[in-house]
Simulated assay, not measured.
Amino acid sequence: CAGYGMRPAILHDQLYGQGAFTRAECDAIFYRALTTGDGTARWRSLLFYAGVRLGGASHYGTA
């Protein structure tokens, strides 16, 4: 059983590691995945999105 946003988080981590998209694009894809079909509440999606925007820079591009 996956927790809230687990599948979008896995996708996001993979996108961050690949570096095929900009960091902002990766984060936008993550937010879209959270809000479409995964069943994550919008308020929780916003918190997750804010978290990756604020704390994700040091992890972008690391495989």
Rank of each mutant, 00 (worst) to 15 (best):
W43F: 10
P8K: 03
G5W: 03
A9T: 14
A63M: 06
Y49E: 12
A63T: 12
Y16L: 02
I10L: 10
F30A: 04
F48D: 13
E25V: 05
G17E: 02
A20Q: 12
R53Q: 11
T22A: 09
Q14P: 00
G17L: 06
A2N: 11
G37D: 12
G39F: 07
A24E: 15
L46S: 15
A24H: 08
W43Q: 13
T35Y: 03
R53K: 15
T62E: 04
G17Y: 01
G17Q: 02
L11I: 13
L47S: 08
R23W: 00
G56D: 05
H59Q: 08
A50M: 09
F21N: 03
R32G: 06
Y16W: 01
R23F: 05
T40N: 06
C1Y: 14
R7W: 13
S45C: 15
Q18T: 12
R23A: 06
L54Q: 02
L46C: 13
D13Y: 08
S45W: 02
Y4I: 15
W43L: 07
A20F: 06
R7Y: 02
G3F: 01
A33P: 07
L34T: 08
G51W: 08
L15Q: 03
G19S: 07
A20S: 11
A28E: 14
Y31C: 07
A41H: 10
E25I: 00
I29F: 02
L11T: 10
Y60M: 06
M6H: 14
R32P: 01
A41C: 01
C26D: 01
A24D: 13
C1G: 15
Q14T: 12
R53L: 15
Y31S: 09
L47K: 13
L46F: 08
G19W: 04
T22M: 10
T36E: 01
L11W: 05
I29R: 15
V52P: 03
G51N: 03
Y31R: 09
L46E: 15
F21C: 09
T62H: 15
T62Y: 05
